[in-house]
Nucleic acid binder design. Structure first.
Lengths: 226, 226
DNA sequence: GGAATGCTTCGACTACGATCGAAGTATGAA
DNA sequence: TTCATACTTCGATCGTAGTCGAAGCATTCC
C-alpha cells in the first residue's frame, strides 16, 4: 500500500503446499522435470504444470528444454538463500513436515543446499577457510584472499572460470540446522562438485542428504581442519 | 512430505496481501493496535482481527494487552530478519508496491528495520564498528569486543542490561536497499533508541523512514567514520 | 509415416479462505 | 449503573485458486 517491496506475491507463491514441496525438492540442487516434481508434490502432471508456470512467472524457477524433457531449477542463488532463510525460521518454530527419523542426523551432518554443501560439514568448511585466512569476511560479503585463490587452484578448481561468471564467487548462506553460515556462491558450488567427482561423497536418493565415504570423510576433515 | 521444515505455512501467512501489509507496518518497529493495523491493510476491524489471530498462531506476532488496547508486535528479532530477507528478494525482482517517489531516497538513507537502524546509515554504522575492531565477525556471528564494550558504555548504553537478556547482543541483518549487512540484536536496538532519545533523529509518521537532524547527522557521522 | 512419451492448455468442479454485518465480551469512563 | 470504546466471535456470502479429466502440441523412436 505504501512503501517497500511486495512480499505478498512471493509469500503466496511459497504458501501453497504443492509449490512449497516442489521448491523444497529443487533445493536439492538438481534440475527436475515436471513429472518428477508432480510426484514430489503429490499432484497430477497438469496441476504441477500450472504451478510451475506460476513459479516461473514469479521468477523463482527457470526452465531449460532438453529433448522432450523440460528441466526446472531454482532461477538463481538468491532464491536458494531466501528459501533457506525461511526454512530456518520455520525450523525454529518447530514446524517440520516429517516425523523425526533416522535420516535426520545425516541431514544435519551434510546435505546439499541448492548447489552447495550445508549442514555441520558446510559450516565447518567455511570456518576452516576463514581461520586459514583464505576467505575474508566483511559484513555479509565474503572475499577470497590471494592465499585462498592458490589453495583452490591447488585443488584443481578453475579460478578463471569462476571469475568470468557474473555470479559472486563467495557468498554466505544461513544454515537452518546449524544456525550459522556456510559457503555458497560459485566457489561453494565448485567445491561440492569436486567432492562428488572425487568420489568422496554421494547424494542420497530422494533426499538432500549427502553421504561421505570413509575415505572422503578423512580427506575432507584433513582438508578443512578447525 | 519428506524432510525439512514446513515453509508453506509461513508462506501462506505472508502471502495474503492484508497480512503482508500488516507485517510491513510492524516492521516499523512500533507495536500497533488492531484498529491501526486494519487501516494499514485496508480492511475492516473484524477482518484484521481474524488475520492477527492467524499470525499469532503462526508465531509471527505477539500481543500485549494494555488497558483496553491490544498492542501487536513482531514476536522476535528473527521474524524481522526473515521478512527483511524476503523483502530483499522481492526488491531484487523489482516487485515494489509503491510508485518510486520522493520518500524513496529518505528510506534508502535511513529507516527503521523492526527495532534497529537500516539503510545507508545502518550499513555504515556496522562497517565503522568493524573497522574500529569494536565488533568482530565470524560467519554470521557478530561479537562485541572488549573495545566495543567500553565504547558503548561510554555512549551511555547499559551493557549489563543487554547481557542479561537471552537475546543476542549483536546480530547481522541483510539490508534490502543496500544489499549488505547492518547491525540488529539488542545492541542495534539500543543504539537506535539512543539516537532518538538524543534528538539526533526522528521517525517519519506513516513510514519507516528516519530523518536525522542537522546536528544529529553530524554527530552520527563523527561517531561512525568510515 | 505412425505410435508413444512428455508436457501444456482448456474447461469445469470444488473447497477454502477472505470479507464484512451483526451480535457478544471486556475494559474504562461518567 | 450506564454508556462508550476496543476488540472478538459468529454466520453468511462471495471469489478465487487449486484440482483433475480431456484434448491439443511437440518431440522422439520405430
Amino acid at each position: 500500500m505504501k512503501e517497500g517491496p511486495d512480499i505478498a506475491l512471493i509469500g503466496s507463491l511459497i504458501g501453497d503446499p504443492a509449490r512449497a514441496n516442489m521448491l523444497s525438492a529443487l533445493m536439492g540442487g538438481q534440475a527436475l522435470t515436471p513429472t518428477e516434481l508432480a510426484a514430489h508434490a503429490g499432484v497430477t502432471l497438469q496441476t504441477a504444470s500450472s504451478h510451475l508456470a506460476k513459479l516461473e512467472a514469479g521468477g523463482l524457477v527457470t526452465q531449460r528444454k532438453q529433448g522432450r524433457h523440460r528441466y526446472y531449477a531454482l532461477s538463481e542463488d538468491e532464491v536458494g538463500l531466501m528459501l533457506e532463510s525461511l526454512m530456518g525460521f520455520a525450523a525454529s518454530r518447530g514446524l517440520t513436515r516429517h516425523r523425526p527419523g533416522p535420516k535426520d542426523p545425516a541431514l544435519r551432518k551434510a546435505r546439499v543446499c541448492y548447489n552447495h554443501l550445508a549442514g555441520d560439514y558446510g559450516v565447518r568448511m567455511l570456518d576452516s577457510l576463514i581461520n586459514a585466512r583464505q576467505i575474508e569476511i566483511a559484513g555479509d560479503d565474503l572475499t577470497l584472499t590471494e592465499a585462498g585463490r592458490e589453495r583452490i587452484e591447488a585443488l584443481g578448481i578453475d579460478y578463471a572460470a569462476l571469475k568470468k561468471s557474473r555470479r559472486p564467487i563467495c557468498r554466505s548462506c544461513l544454515d537452518w540446522s546449524e544456525r550459522r553460515s556456510h559457503l555458497a556462491g560459485s566457489l561453494g558450488e565448485a567445491l561440492l562438485k569436486l567432492f562428488l567427482n572425487e568420489g568422496w561423497a554421494k547424494r542420497e536418493k530422494e533426499s538432500r542428504a549427502i553421504r561421505f565415504t570413509d575415505r572422503g570423510d578423512k580427506a575432507f576433515l584433513d582438508l578443512f581442519p578447525l
